[in-house]
Amino acid sequence: MKIIAVNGSPRKNWNTHILLNKALEGAQSEGAQTELVNLYDLAYKGCISCMACKVKNGKSLGHCTVNDELKPVLETIEKCDGLIIGSPIYYSDVTAMTKGFLERFLFQYLSYDDYSQTFYDGNIKKSAFIYTMNVPESMTDQIGYNALFEKYKMMFRHFGYDQTIVSTETLQVNDYSKYHMASFNEAERKERREKVFPADCQKAYDLGKSMAKV
């Protein structure tokens, strides 16, 4: 069993990274092999629409041919059993690096003959998303985030989409006084980090544990 987590956050050892590591700890507790990919460590671009992955009888059918640092990652992911993608929400969507990864990962398997079909024939049996953000849970539907989560869930329908974990009102920095961030209550954020974030970590751990039981 191999579980891969893809970190779409530029900030290591912070909210998204911590949750993904907890998920991998859960998978490891069930004996799974795990790997964490930090997208911001890689040099790559999003899909360039070359259509090489869709050439009839082509040697690259269903596979991205762009030869950069993401290519071997895509090849490794294709062979894993479980995939967890984590991203903070920046300007109402996943990060740019996450978006570029999703373009490259998903488009290679998309068939324009029939949208219900896929060129994917790999091992992934379960997939999941972990999102972190500064907005409160009560606002996620109002500002369209729930629709965003459903969109990505639909995109992963061919990969056994399992669940979505959302961590809200996360701690953004250690010292808010250094930044123009007066709309946030530092004391409340730090209290939430101590009392609520551990529950999110447990959810992530349980996700990884469950995924490793596929």
Rank of each mutant, 00 (worst) to 15 (best):
M1C: 03
K2E: 13
K2Q: 11
I4A: 01
V6E: 14
S9G: 10
S9V: 13
P10W: 13
K12C: 04
L19Q: 06
N21L: 02
N21E: 03
L24S: 01
A27Q: 01
L36M: 10
L36G: 05
V37E: 03
Y44G: 08
K45L: 11
G46M: 08
C50S: 06
K54T: 14
G58M: 09
S60T: 13
V66S: 12
E69D: 14
K71A: 07
E75I: 13
I77R: 02
I85S: 11
A96T: 15
K99V: 07
L102Y: 12
S111R: 14
D113C: 15
D114T: 12
N123K: 06
N123H: 01
S127N: 03
S127M: 10
I130W: 00
I130M: 13
I130K: 02
Y131M: 09
T132L: 10
N134R: 09
E137V: 07
E137H: 07
T140N: 05
F149V: 08
K151Y: 14
M154S: 15
H158D: 10
F159A: 04
G160W: 03
Y161D: 06
V166A: 00
T168H: 04
V173P: 02
Y176K: 05
Y176T: 03
S177L: 10
F184R: 11
E186V: 02
E186I: 02
R189E: 03
K190N: 00
R192P: 03
R193N: 11
V196C: 06
F197L: 13
D200K: 04
C201E: 10
K203F: 15
K203E: 06
K203I: 15
D206S: 10
